[in-house]
Amino acid sequence: MPTPDLPYDPAELRTLALSDTGFIFDPRTGHSYSANATGLATLAAMKDGLDPAAIATKLRAEFKGGAAVEDDVAGFVDLLRELGLVRARSAP
């Protein structure tokens, strides 16, 4: 269910194939990517429609030692936008 206040559209990530190895494939473009463990977890959570705050909570629960996790998640979403994996969303 798309939530309009997310800074990304989970639907855009639906076709993305994520592997536990960190190997990611975008069948729409044929590009593949490599992510670290937190990157992979963030992507998976984004696919599930979690908002950035919920993703940060999840990362804190699954990994130890995170400090400014919210900023890191925001930076990651920017990076996905830079890579063309998510598009900028116009404000509702």
Binding site: A17, S19, T21, G22, F23, F25, S32, S34
Partner: peptide, 11 residues
Amino acid sequence: ELADLESLMAY
């Protein structure tokens, strides 16, 4: 297959 690439990339 994609799995061939993944294996080479990851392992």
